[in-house]
């Protein structure tokens, strides 16, 4: 009895150590893949989503309550003022906005700094009827940039745009979609909209190391509340 007990104890200790090692090993491996999924899940985003997958994050789909809107007469557009700051509380984004124009080749200029987003001045002013466009980098050549967490936005999230005048406009996210760059949805992003809308654009998907470009764009579509 005593002899057996003496032999058992180290064995038990050894098996406990083995189990611990195995569990730690499994946690490390799964942790690695979880990080990888977080980084690349933007890839799988977009495209019509399986409708069954969420109920919690969506704003009420009930069409019943539309709210009361006071009818206005002729269109009296608010005075257009320049947007200067963008805040997205749910993903910790807070950035000033630089001005973006068209490049010589007709493409949209991107911000000169990795950590600052930019507003496309040739489009619509945020808060005015139509789609206002703000673009930002997903990463720099070394690490995350201003729109790194954009893929984590969900429908119903709030986006705040501060104007030069001090007014803060509140937008609500309708959807987040990923498009291959050779099928960029120009009409969806820049085409006519009947209310004040906002688009946030960054890169997503596979990174092509030969050209130094991502192969997809991630677009957040939101409207003024």
């Amino acid at each position: 009895m005593t002899a057996r007990g003496r032999h058992r104890r180290p064995r038990r200790r050894r098996s406990i150590a083995a189990s611990t090692a195995l569990v730690l090993c499994l946690i490390a491996v799964s942790g690695y893949f979880r990080l990888r999924a977080d980084r690349t899940d933007a890839l799988s985003r977009g495209a019509p989503v399986p409708s069954s997958s969420t109920t919690s994050s969506s704003p009420s789909t009930s069409p019943k309550i539309i709210g009361v809107a006071t009818a206005t007469g002729a269109s009296t557009p608010r005075t257009a003022t320049t947007p200067v700051h963008l805040t997205i509380p749910s993903i910790g984004v807070s950035t000033d906005l630089e001005s973006l124009k068209l490049l010589a080749n007709g493409a949209l200029q991107t911000p000169s700094q990795w950590d600052v987003a930019g507003w496309y001045t040739g489009g619509v002013v945020p808060g005015q009827i139509g789609p206002a466009v703000i673009a930002g980098h997903v990463d720099s050549t070394r690490g995350p940039a201003v729109f790194y967490r954009l893929h984590a936005l969900v429908a119903g999230a709030t986006i705040l745009v501060a104007e030069q005048s001090g007014t803060v406009l509140s937008f609500v996210v309708d959807r987040v979609q990923v498009y291959p760059k050779d099928h960029f949805p120009t009409t969806t992003v820049y085409g006519p909209a009947p209310i004040a809308e906002l688009r946030l654009i960054t890169c997503a998907g596979e990174f092509d190391r030969r050209t130094g470009n991502y192969l997809s764009n991630l677009v957040v579509l939101a409207h003024l509340t």
């Binding site: 980084r39 007709g106 493409a107 949209l108 991107t110 911000p111 990795w114 673009a135 930002g136 980098h137 997903v138 990463d139 720099s140 050549t141 070394r142 690490g143 995350p144 940039a145 729109f147 790194y148 498009y179 760059k181 050779d182 960029f184 120009t186 654009i201 960054t202 890169c203 596979e206 990174f207 190391r209 130094g212 470009n213 991502y214 764009n217």
Partner: peptide
């Protein structure tokens, strides 16, 4: 076309 908005540092 599309928007080039990434440096690939986190790819």
């Amino acid at each position: 076309g599309s928007v080039l908005a990434g440096g690939g540092g986190t790819a």
